[in-house]
Design a binder for these strands. Sequence first.
DNA 1: ACTGATATCGATACCGGTATCGATAACATT
DNA 2: AATGTTATCGATACCGGTATCGATATCAGT
Lengths: 346, 346
Amino acid sequence: MCLPSGLQSIDAKAMKKRITLSDVAAAAGVSKMTASRALRGTGDVSRSSMEKVGRAAKEIGYVGNHLAMSLASRRSDLIGVVVPSFLNVVFAEVLSGIAESLDGSGMQPVFGVTDYDPDREYEIIRNMLSWNPAGLIITGLDQPDETLQLLENADVPVVQIMDLDGTPVDACVGLSHHAAGASMAEALIAKGRRRFGYVGCGLDRDTRARKRFTGFKEALSAHGLALKTTWTGPGPSTVKAGREFTAQVLETHPELDCIYYSNDDLAVGGAFHCIAAGINVPEALVIAGFNGLDLVESLPVRIATSRTPRREIGNAAARIILGSDRDDPATGGTRTEFRPEIETGL
Amino acid sequence: MCLPSGLQSIDAKAMKKRITLSDVAAAAGVSKMTASRALRGTGDVSRSSMEKVGRAAKEIGYVGNHLAMSLASRRSDLIGVVVPSFLNVVFAEVLSGIAESLDGSGMQPVFGVTDYDPDREYEIIRNMLSWNPAGLIITGLDQPDETLQLLENADVPVVQIMDLDGTPVDACVGLSHHAAGASMAEALIAKGRRRFGYVGCGLDRDTRARKRFTGFKEALSAHGLALKTTWTGPGPSTVKAGREFTAQVLETHPELDCIYYSNDDLAVGGAFHCIAAGINVPEALVIAGFNGLDLVESLPVRIATSRTPRREIGNAAARIILGSDRDDPATGGTRTEFRPEIETGL
DNA sequence: ACTGATATCGATACCGGTATCGATAACATT
DNA sequence: AATGTTATCGATACCGGTATCGATATCAGT
């Protein structure tokens, strides 16, 4: 504010020239090239200059510039990860698994959120490609053609996660949601349930939930059964919505002995309603979700769920990217299947 | 595998040369510079070449290269965001808020996870700085000196989020956790509670939870009260841990009429235990958490919590970065305070 | 016809690194 | 002593864009 501060600020700004590799080289008394080699630890540098450069870099606080590095070497250590939402714990765990497996590899994940919007997904992928990442991990197999073309044109390994029902661009790792829905139906029928209802949210946007729903219905049909009622809402899957929808469904269909939800968040809401309404879960009514959230196993009542290995999916995806050789088109094309464990709670 | 396929692969690789601005310029019959200007929409380009370039770019599928762009223009549209964990919904919502406010600004958030490890935080920040981002959003005010120095040397606007109890590098937005702990104690005392217990997880790493704890205890002291018992565990805050710890605490201290938890995850676990054990919540025992998770309002029993505005904090942080002018050191230094709403459930 | 202003464009020099290849020195080989 | 090897290093040409400034064309004014 006062004069000295003003002067100092000008001074500081003048000083604030980015410290470059040339500065390090000058300080160490070697050429830029030698400094570059020394800092990267590639061979062909004497021990003495190695030390000189290291010391100089530390001394003047050299940070390096990934932009220049990646541009010059035509490769970056970024891995683009595209998921529909952060709010869903499931994706949070996948991301966590990815970060875990990437740790120590020198690769850095960059996350993008599509909010289940295909247009936004296209934009995000396009944006990520412009950083020419070492790889891309994207959610699902149901991208629109335009997006697929983008991915195919780009010379980047792509791993599609979570889903297996469809054709991957390159590699994919996940599980068959159609099969998951079907086996939940099988398991519940085997436990004697007959009068099923369904509650789902955001099915228009969540293609995987839709696949589970279809698989579930088909398995019922195969046993000569059908859903007594289907309640779907547009909003996001929340515990609150689960609780409200369950109350409404049970009002019109008190005869149900099982409700299948599009996921655990809704199912937990259903469980809360039952607890509050004094409905005996699971004897009188089975609440069945999907994902096997940690939360579920601590619930005061036992509900059914399919435990999906989120962290493992993230791990596997990251490892595929790490193992894929950009110059060898033969890499990739792998298909890694996980099978959810079904828990009926009965 | 067979010859033609091999040949094609070689061919495809030869074709797979990155499409650059020069290609677009050639296709449009203008210079690189004109193509650059046309694509960016900066002035000084005739309508006709604008269209030619646009068409050519679309036709040959030009994607652009952020690396080169950022390097040449010495500015990037990346915003680095550093949080301790994805698994905590709170941070997921903050990230979501950041992404929301950044949407349409042309800025892209890049997320890093520290796992509550200061060394990793240092590395992540260092790595982010090497992409010279337009700004940095980091969690908390308690970075080690080394990290602070890194931040101060870098010529990048920094916003520290979540916490206000301390001195920010530049701007900060969040709430006082010390005050939040204290006001929860005040509110509970006002409701007639006297026999308090505390359950917390990961306090060694979560400095903000520690501040709440301290604030809580100090407020109790001010009323001549003290905690009857303190139960702290090392692991992460999970619902499961909350349920187990609560069972154990109540076994030795059945006289408690209120338990304060380090956050809502643990508190929800506590609520689950009480439901399962038939303990009357909140009349017989108040369960008090922190954060005001959506989940909490759907619970079959009412628990106390402090509603923190996660999304708003994210929004505010993003807007500070967007509004900060890199060349004007006067920007920043703002301190944006949010006050949590307290809900006692009584 | 000449001048000046305005609109449009391109040549060139970078941004901060890396790839490549040739130069140099030190040492071993015959 | 002449030659070959190996280890180390630096000059130079990029990577794919943008900044800058000067060149050219067009048109109005006189």
